[in-house]
Write a protein that binds this DNA or RNA. Structure first.
Lengths: 196, 196
DNA sequence: TTCCTTTCTTAATCTAGATTAATGAAAACC
DNA sequence: GGTTTTCATTAATCTAGATTAAGAAAGGAA
């Protein structure tokens, strides 16, 4: 059962917080526990909350017409995750967000967040900053997806998230880089041949 | 030569502004003029500014190893555009941002923007909100790219941006939806056949 | 230990979309 | 107003990655 220290640390990497501000921040959240395979959000529901992962790992994914899952994001410890389209526009989520491992998270709903911004403008700054950063990340991801082939996307993923390679089943990584598990298997065996 | 009214209108769709606040906002910007084919940003440069388009249209694109261009975003009147990765981390831009038409824009550099946030927290709110929205848009785009086929991506683009279909050369749209101009041509002829 | 489910691998075949090439039509430029 | 780039189209061929199928490994639960 990890405490909320990771959240305070994370926020304070971007903006300084007094002790009372820290308290005010924490009361905006509630704790959430998600055993492996349980859902934080199911597509069709309206997403009301943003999650900050303390332990474990969540993933967000969309399902296409053929029923194939496409991973959008992994959220291990210290990451934020939500369905921005659903929460912003109050629309049914296209995304599912599911625990890949037993997960502990801090959850904050939108109204709480807006009250928080009203009380502590510094936290509006924090969220402005992390939203800019995740915007930048999302752009990088899109560029990579359209302008790099599958093998190089895999190589890049390995460099960028070495700990996730250890931690996650290959099929989850395949779904993230946008190939079938069979093709990822082929890529890996080619890489092994090439190296030895 | 359009004035800055479009900017004030746009901001005030999200947050209210007093008259003095409006003035303070405007002085953070300078005017920029980009004849067709001129660049607001070239890859390799460090991006220092965000642009708000008053008239005309910009596009951002990345170039892959084979030299193929991949359009990330179009910015017609009322849209914001920048290279978030470059401006945030002060790194050489991966993106090019070029005028597709003769373009008038308002430009603001990062330091100006930070001073603006310090003076007017309400504008930090505004940028928090539009960054959230563009984050949501970027996510939608990524999901679409990986889970929908080219024909349906084109159909969706036509619905979403009917005015751009009129305005832009097909090759720019092809590059945005992630196909070659030849294949888009094929898609279009199939759609025509199907309809008649 | 054994059974059951999930995951990974290999290989054959298939397909959406790329590439190449050639032609005609617009625009843009002088 | 001609000429030179740029753009759109069609068609033949090619390829990265999907699909299908089937076996091997590797957990988990009991």
């Amino acid at each position: 059962m990890p405490g909320p220290e990771l959240l305070l640390q994370t926020v304070q990497k971007s903006v300084p917080l007094e002790s009372e501000e820290q308290q005010r921040l924490l009361v905006a959240f509630q704790k959430g526990t998600f055993p492996r395979k349980e859902f934080f959000l199911r597509s069709g529901e309206v997403c009301k909350q943003v999650a900050f992962v303390l332990q474990g790992c969540l993933r967000s994914y969309a399902v296409d017409e053929e029923g194939t899952e496409h991973n959008l994001q992994f959220a291990p410890e210290g990451w934020w995750i939500t369905d921005m389209n659903s929460i912003l526009y109050n629309q049914p989520a296209q995304l599912n967000i599911e625990a890949i491992e037993d997960t502990q998270a801090l959850l904050m709903n939108r109204e709480q967040q807006e009250l928080l911004f009203r009380d502590l403008p510094i936290l509006e700054r924090f969220f402005r900053i992390i939203t800019e950063k995740s915007m930048a990340g999302s752009h990088k991801r899109l560029i990579e997806q359209v302008s790099v082939n599958a093998k190089d996307r895999y190589i890049h993923f390995c460099k960028l998230y070495p700990e996730l390679i250890q931690r996650l089943p290959q099929k989850q990584i395949a779904s993230y880089i946008g190939v079938t598990p069979e093709f990822l298997s082929k890529i890996k065996s080619e890489l092994l041949k090439g190296k030895s």
